[in-house]
Each structure stands twice: as structure tokens, then as C-alpha cells.
């Protein structure tokens, strides 16, 4: 079959694609290659001075305990964010999918946080969790006589950050899960109902497996969110503190690159993040292929 018949000339499709290529080249491929190159240099003043140092920047990442902590923080933080935003997202979507009065209103409210800019979301959490002047501690003090130092204790600070990141992203998962739930084949669920399956069984044996393509897609998207889009929360809420407990890779890259002007090290961190996310995505697709059920 002739698939090129639409175009009279061979070069026409290339010309039509040219703008995309130019944009990809200038804004994506060139910066990526430049990052790889810079990671091999010791750079001063954002590139005013450069010396080739080979893999020294990577050695620094592997040997300096500060970066070990950064990698560990990133793994823990991302895992928590991905798990909770998807679990809560799914739970809320199932609730919002019930045929109850005002469900459109509930759905709207659930999606709302997603529409906020992360900077605003971060500022809201900063106000909420200020240990002396925040509303959370105001109520805790009134009812339980405690005033936790939310952002000053490592575990609590990670908790607040995860809560903020999850709260912001749950709406995104709700949108997709509700769409997924509404497209489920009704006959399968009906058959399960007639066979006497309990609601619990119906959810775990029928609904959840049928949602697996959506879950898989959201898993990839949430992972990317947790790695790349959580920067504003760290920047606004903790600055990586207390004592580096919330210093995740994306924040560390920014801080090393633009505050400490260690461009070479920051580039090496970017490469690590890049390779990490690529590997993780490949792994997800490998595992996903086997588990995901695309039938309908």
C-alpha cells in the first residue's frame, strides 16, 4: 500500500516538520548535549571560565555524603508523593463517581488545587504550617496543647512537603481516574454484581484491573511530577532544610547551579537525574507491558 500518496513531493513532509525540529533542536537537544558537556568541566561564573576535569564532578557526587543524602531524599520523597497522590486520587475518584446529588460540584472542588500555581500552593502551606503564627498550630494548641515545629524537624518537614506536593497533584489524578471509571464496561461490573461479588471484591477484582492502563499512565506522569515539578515547594517551604533533610535533586541542581555557581556539579546532577528518569521509565514500560490489561 502506498502510504506517501498524500504528499506530491518527498520533501514536503520534512518542510512541514521543520518548525518542530528547529524547536526541538534549539530548546531540547542542544541544551541536553550542552549539559552533558558542562558536566565534564569545572565551571566558574556561569561559564566565564571553564577547565576540563573529566569525571571529577561525578566522583564528587558519588563520594560526598551530602549528595548521598540528596539521592536518598529524592527516592523517599518521590516514592511517597507518587504513592499518596495516586492512592488518594483513586479513592476520591471512586467516591466522586457515585451517583449522588451535587457530584459535579464535588468533582469541581477536587480538581481545583491542580489549577493553582505551585508557588501559590507552597505559600498557602507556608502560612498553614508556620509554627508560631500558622493556623494548624493554632488549633493544635487550642485542642491538644502541642505546637510541633513543622518545618524545623526533619520528619515533619518531609511530611509537610509530601502533603503539599500530593495535595497539589491529586486533582490531576482525579480527572484521569474519573474519566477511566466512566469508561469502564458496565456489563462486566453487572455480571460481577449478579455473581454476588461484594463491593470490595468488585473493586479489587474488576474495577482496579480494568483501570490498569490509566494507573500505568498516571504512574509515569506522577513520577515525572515528583522528580521535576516539586521544586517550588522545597524552595518556598524549607530551602532544603532542616540540615538538608528535604534537599531533593531538583532543588540541589538549582542551588548548586545558580546560588553556589557550581555549574559543573549542577550539570552532573542533571545528567544523573536525566539518566535516572530514563531508566525508571524504561523499567516502568517493561514491567507495565506484562501487568497492564488493555482489553476492553
Amino acid at each position: 500500500m502506498e502510504t506517501h500518496a498524500v504528499y506530491k513531493h518527498r520533501w514536503l513532509p520534512w518542510i512541514l516538520l521543520l518548525p518542530t525540529f528547529v524547536i526541538l533542536l534549539v530548546f531540547l537537544y542542544y541544551p541536553t548535549l550542552e549539559t552533558f558537556r558542562l558536566s565534564l568541566y569545572r565551571v566558574a561564573f556561569l561559564g566565564l571560565r571553564k577547565t576540563f576535569v573529566g569525571l571529577a564532578n561525578y566522583r564528587e557526587l558519588l563520594t560526598n555524603p551530602t549528595y548521598h543524602q540528596v539521592f536518598l531524599n529524592t527516592a523517599v520523597f518521590s516514592a511517597l508523593v507518587v504513592f499518596f497522590s495516586m492512592a488518594i486520587g483513586l479513592f476520591l475518584s471512586v467516591l466522586a463517581n457515585q451517583k449522588i446529588g451535587g457530584r459535579r460540584f464535588y468533582r469541581l472542588l477536587l480538581i481545583w488545587p491542580y489549577a493553582l500555581s505551585p508557588a501559590v500552593a507552597g505559600a498557602i502551606f507556608l502560612f498553614l504550617f508556620n509554627p508560631q503564627a500558622g493556623i494548624v498550630n493554632y488549633f493544635l494548641q487550642a485542642f491538644f496543647k502541642v505546637q510541633p515545629d513543622w518545618l524545623g524537624q526533619p520528619t515533619l518537614a518531609v511530611g509537610v512537603l509530601v502533603a503539599a506536593a500530593v495535595w497539589k497533584n491529586v486533582g490531576y489524578n482525579v480527572v484521569f481516574y474519573i474519566a477511566g471509571l466512566q469508561n469502564l464496561p458496565g456489563d462486566v461490573l453487572e455480571a460481577a454484581l449478579i455473581d454476588g461479588a461484594t463491593p470490595w471484591q468488585r473493586f479489587w477484582k474488576v474495577t482496579f484491573p480494568l483501570l490498569s492502563p490509566m494507573t500505568f499512565f498516571l504512574f509515569v506522569m506522577n513520577t515525572i511530577y515528583a522528580f521535576f515539578d516539586t521544586f517550588p515547594f522545597v524552595d518556598l517551604l524549607t530551602q532544603g532544610g532542616p540540615n538538608g533533610a528535604t534537599n531533593i535533586l531538583i532543588f540541589s541542581i538549582y542551588r548548586d547551579g545558580f546560588r553556589f555557581l557550581k555549574t559543573g556539579v549542577a550539570a552532573a546532577e542533571s545528567v544523573v537525574l536525566f539518566v535516572g528518569v530514563v531508566l525508571l521509565t524504561i523499567l516502568q514500560f517493561r514491567l507495565g507491558e506484562r501487568r497492564v490489561h488493555y482489553g476492553g
Binding site: P131, Q132, A133, L237, G241
Partner: peptide
């Protein structure tokens, strides 16, 4: 001693003082 928990948080310290918490 009280602070907002976030390093280099000038506004946080001002907030605590202005709201007469310290």
C-alpha cells in the same frame, strides 16, 4: 527562641514579632 523552621526566612521572623508572638 522561635523561628519559622525555614532557613533564611526574614519574613517568617518578622511575622512572629509583628503578630506579638515573641
Amino acid at each position: 527562641y522561635a523561628y519559622s523552621g525555614k532557613p533564611e526566612d526574614w519574613d517568617g521572623a518578622n511575622q512572629i514579632f509583628v503578630s506579638q508572638q515573641a
